[in-house]
């Protein structure tokens, strides 16, 4: 199945490699991976979509957390979330064929963002199926797709959920909405070896 994880990571060189390398090591193919800034400086947000067996989510999350630069991981696929992707598609179209494309754009809530004598460019946001729907119609209507670029998915949970780490950083006490609720205090069990050097 397709898993969707959101990971908040330190914005430092090499962090993307570490995350990507982990999936390689686990022999899991990444379907898409987007990275960008988050609401907090120094913290980047990744949305990772990967194809893996249902029962592997636990191990993927646990392994991501073992990376020192990973601050928080959320398996958003298990929650109600807004998932969006942006695509820009350049289609071959002269003056005669444009009109139909304008109509298509309207149906798909896409925008025309560039118009040239021999081509035009569509911009579309939405879930993957919406984008793939547009592409399918274009292909079936014998349009020639000259270029296509997709951002990959970005995801955010609906409702009041905010990230646990950022909560902690803001020193907001865990509310019942927080993922901390109902879980034991784990700090007690995360022992640092006390056997230092004498």
């Amino acid at each position: 199945m397709l898993h969707t994880f959101v990971a908040l990571v330190e914005n430092k060189p090499g962090v993307l490699t570490r995350v990507a390398s982990l999936f390689r090591r686990l022999n899991i193919n990444i379907t898409s991976l987007t990275v960008g800034e988050s609401e907090r400086s120094g913290v980047s947000r990744m949305t990772i979509v990967a194809e893996a067996a249902v029962d592997r989510a636990h191990r993927i999350m646990a392994s991501l957390y073992k990376l020192e630069n990973v601050l928080e991981v959320d398996d958003v696929g298990r929650h109600s979330a807004v998932v969006r992707e942006l695509a820009i598609v350049k289609v071959a179209a002269g003056p005669k064929t444009r009109a139909h494309l304008f109509e298509l754009a309207k149906v798909f809530h896409a925008r025309i963002v560039d118009l040239a004598p021999e081509s035009l460019m569509l911009e579309i946001t939405g879930g993957a199926s919406k984008i793939e729907g547009l592409v399918q119609v274009l292909v079936e209507s014998d349009y020639q797709i000259l270029e296509m670029a997709r951002t990959g998915r970005m995801a955010m949970r609906r409702g009041q959920h905010t990230s646990r780490v950022l909560d902690a950083l803001r020193e907001v006490p865990a509310t019942s909405e927080s993922t901390l609720a109902g879980k034991p205090k784990h700090t007690a069990l995360g022992k640092v070896s006390t056997e230092g050097h004498a």
Partner: peptide, 12 residues
């Protein structure tokens, strides 16, 4: 301070 793995869990 050391940040324990957030998925540690040995509750009652």
């Amino acid at each position: 301070a050391y940040r324990p793995h957030p998925m540690l869990r040995a509750d009652a």
